[in-house]
């Protein structure tokens, strides 16, 4: 029963992440939606798969390694893209920008 609850939570998080990427105004806020909702949804769906499957213990460990790698890789790519977009010349729509004060 609990795996279906986890699956529903992951799917809803994924849908709200996609809507956030469509609705938010600039790249940085879109990265917020992409990173958080993707990582949370992917990890909960993989946990649901680990509880649901009846395979051997090594398959469950492999799925756990997949969840760990997603949690490690997704934020890293997110802030690589954020820094690259800032250096590319896209001005963020913000109220205060302390990064532009220090790197004129």
């Amino acid at each position: 029963m609990i795996e279906y609850l986890l699956l529903a939570f992951g799917e809803i998080a994924m849908i709200f992440g996609a809507l956030g990427i469509l609705r938010f105004p600039d790249v940085y806020t879109r990265l917020h939606a992409a990173t958080k909702c993707d990582t949370g949804g992917a990890m909960t769906i993989l946990l649901a798969l680990i509880i649901y499957t009846d395979a051997s213990i090594f398959i469950k460990l492999k799925l756990l390694v997949l969840a760990f790698l997603i949690a490690l890789i997704n934020p890293m790519i997110s802030h690589a893209i954020a820094k690259g977009a800032y250096k590319y010349g896209i001005k963020p729509k913000v109220v205060v920008d302390m990064y532009a004060w220090d790197n004129p």
């Binding site: 709200f16 809507l19 956030g20 609705r23 938010f24 940085y28 806020t29 939606a33 963020p92 729509k93 913000v94 109220v95 205060v96 920008d97 302390m98 990064y99 532009a100 220090d102």
Partner: peptide, 12 residues
């Protein structure tokens, strides 16, 4: 996403 109540800023 639902309410769009954002006020972004870059803090050090």
């Amino acid at each position: 996403v639902i309410f769009m109540d954002i006020k972004p800023g870059i803090i050090k």
